[in-house]
Design a protein around this nucleic acid. Sequence first.
DNA 1: CGATGGGTCATACTTTAGTATGATTTTACG
DNA 2: CGTAAAATCATACTAAAGTATGACCCATCG
Lengths: 157, 157
Amino acid sequence: MIRRFLSKNKAVLGYGLSLAVLLFILKWLELRFVIYDHAMELYVGAIALMFTLLGIWLARKLTRPQKETIIIEKTVYPDTSLGFVPNETEIAGLGISKRELEVLELMARGFSNEEIANRLFVSLNTIKTHSSRLFEKLDVSRRTQAVEKAKRLRLIP
Amino acid sequence: MIRRFLSKNKAVLGYGLSLAVLLFILKWLELRFVIYDHAMELYVGAIALMFTLLGIWLARKLTRPQKETIIIEKTVYPDTSLGFVPNETEIAGLGISKRELEVLELMARGFSNEEIANRLFVSLNTIKTHSSRLFEKLDVSRRTQAVEKAKRLRLIP
DNA sequence: CGATGGGTCATACTTTAGTATGATTTTACG
DNA sequence: CGTAAAATCATACTAAAGTATGACCCATCG
């Protein structure tokens, strides 16, 4: 606890210490030389200088550095393969299954139903049923519409 | 020239002025009260305080603010719908005509050939020929592929 | 002026897409 | 263990999409 206090109030402690040292020097000067009236200006000047310097030092120590936030806008071209996060909420809300989503993705990539069937190792009819259900759920009637809507809803990249 | 000097050295001049004022005050105090030995500490203290404050003020005026730059990189995704610039080079290179591009855009938006025909006030057959030529030029065989490729080549948004 | 390219349209045809319906098999869950 | 959702497949059909070919109009350009 004490260490924390020390570290937190380092500047203040430093100021106190400096003050003490300066007062000591003053006392010493007072004893060393009899202060005549004509020496007064010099004495005051010295004090002024010292404390001005102290003030400068204090100011530099105490003022916390001004933070300047520079926001660099970095344009990132939608690298569909890297930075895509599917809208799970929408997918779930529409009740689209995993398999249907797979079909949808391949559709969006321009594959025909037959090509999709070959890729997924199922029959053409299966793909047809999948796509039909997909169109129902997406409330569309053609694959191009489905792709357009799916991209708009961020179901697919 | 004088005004420029004044404005450039405002802080220095301020310091000089303050010093003069303070010295005047000191002189006044010296005249006003006879400075006894026991009043010495108080006097010195006042000077110390004043000059410390002056030093702080000076430091704040003269030293340029300590900046701590925080750089935040903010990724900005370009709004494809607003700031879209078609790749004219590619369009010209592939020899795609204005009308064909129109058809392509409507295709991408999910319209059927018949819908496109109605929109452009031409017959279904015309749209079919347009799309056939389009597919040839894009080297694809289906509309979904055409849309995918066109978007990839930035022919359409 | 004639060739060229863009746009239009038609007919005839093939292929792909999409719908309707029914059935079987997995798989997940209470 | 039984049920519901998901996934599979089939048949039969309709509706789009796409191809091939030929024709016509019109502006532009050498």
